Amino acid sequence: MQKGMTRLGEHPKPCPSNRRSTLSEVSPRVRKACEELRCLLNWGYPKQSALEFVSNHHKLLLEERNILARTVFPDQLAADLKRRRVDPREVRGKELGIDGYNVLITVESMVEGKTLFLCDDGWVRDVSAVFGRHRITPTTQKALAELLNLLDQLKPSWFEFLFEKQVSWSGRLAELVRREIDKRELDGTAKTVSKVDSKLKGGYEFIATSDHAIILKHYKVLDLPSLLVERLGTQLLRM
């Protein structure tokens, strides 16, 4: 244990954070868990062990654990992630790589009327955790239409949806996206790749994702779902 750090479960000093939690829309139990996790992260504890400790202590359900995992960040990391967020107007005339499942699943949640979260780092995220089990449904068609209409407005010079090759039905999904792009006569495509994160890291001037591990590897990142919040009437819970 590093000098100055305390054991999990002990709170010998105030939480070193300037942010105030605004979780009045969720249960007090989850609100308290978020505050405690944020404190532990700001004290330097590894996220996975801190998340497990806090979740077990408060007896959180799986969805509640997902809320903590996807929305809470230490202050320094949150600030770093925010700096990488770009104004959507900057994408005009530039190439854009899109983290296909990450972005599409989030917009599907919005189309279904689910509540999303405005996270510590400023990104809009869902907590559905359906990535490996994704299936093409009518909701997929609606979400894709919203995304393509948005991309038509943003007018990148060219865009590319990337889907993980190892996920079932990803080939059919990429084919569907290409077909819809062609219908709209947009300058873009979709394909499956073995490692989306590696491809996004150095292949595009701008990328679109809410995966913080990918965001940290790039300096010009677009939050596409956040641009659809008002249009789709999505409720955002601010963490």
Rank of each mutant, 00 (worst) to 15 (best):
I215D: 04
L173V: 03
H57E: 15
T139Y: 03
W169K: 15
Q48I: 13
D187L: 14
V26S: 05
I98N: 02
G44L: 00
K32V: 00
S170H: 10
L173C: 08
F117S: 01
L186N: 07
K195L: 13
V177D: 02
E205I: 09
T106A: 04
W43A: 08
T209A: 02
L23F: 08
K199F: 12
K32S: 13
Y101F: 14
L237G: 07
L8I: 08
T71H: 02
D211M: 04
L118V: 10
D87F: 12
G202W: 11
V103R: 00
K195Q: 15
E160I: 14
L77Y: 09
R238K: 15
I215F: 09
R172S: 14
S55E: 13
E185W: 06
S226W: 06
L228P: 00
M5V: 09
R89L: 10
P138V: 00
V91E: 01
G9A: 07
A69T: 00
K114P: 02
Y45P: 09
P12Y: 07
P46N: 14
S226K: 14
S157M: 12
M110W: 06
P16R: 13
L227E: 05
L144Q: 07
G202V: 08
V177P: 09
E160L: 15
A143Q: 04
W169C: 14
E180S: 05
T139N: 00
G188N: 05
